[in-house]
Computed example of a mutant assay.
Amino acid sequence: MIGKKIIESEPVSGAEVKEIIEEYSENNELNYEQNLTINHLARFKRYSVEDSKEILEKLHEAFPNMKAKVAVHIVDLVPKDLADLRLIFAKEAYQPNKEEMEQILEILEQYDIVE
């Protein structure tokens, strides 16, 4: 891509991506990749956009050392137990202890998953 440069990059949850693509599709035709993305996002259970944003805020406040992309993975993957969380943190520099992981699960349990 000659002449194009990424100015800013910010991880967003799957729920936000789905909402953005759906809004875009109201006025424009989706390309192949966008259709694949929307079909993929429709297959999985996830939190609503509002809940996703709230969870990300709470995770950032409770765990300032956690990278934003890891928090987004937590919201998108909806871990159910400590084993799932350990997999998310497997290759990360920040490794929460058992109590912190339980706190993450408690934050997630406060919200309902949208089918």
Rank of each mutant, 00 (worst) to 15 (best):
A68L: 07
K4L: 14
E54C: 01
I113S: 03
N65K: 13
H40Y: 13
E109L: 01
I2N: 13
P96V: 02
E115H: 04
I88C: 03
E16V: 14
F63I: 07
E22C: 10
Y111K: 00
E99L: 06
N31I: 14
G3V: 08
A42D: 15
K80M: 08
L59Q: 04
K69E: 12
V49K: 14
K45L: 04
E22H: 11
A83E: 14
M1V: 13
S13G: 12
V75F: 01
P64Q: 09
I6F: 07
M1D: 11
Q110G: 07
A71G: 13
R43T: 11
K80I: 05
I107P: 02
S9E: 15
K58G: 02
E57T: 08
I113T: 08
L56D: 05
E106P: 00
L105I: 01
L108G: 01
N65M: 11
I113L: 14
E22S: 15
D112P: 00
P79V: 03
N27V: 08
P64R: 08
S25W: 09
Q95F: 00
E23R: 15
Q103D: 07
E29T: 13
I6R: 12
A71I: 04
K98A: 04
E99R: 07
A42Q: 12
L82R: 05
D76F: 02
E99T: 07
E50K: 10
K80N: 11
N97D: 11
L30P: 10
V75Y: 02
Y24V: 12
I38F: 01
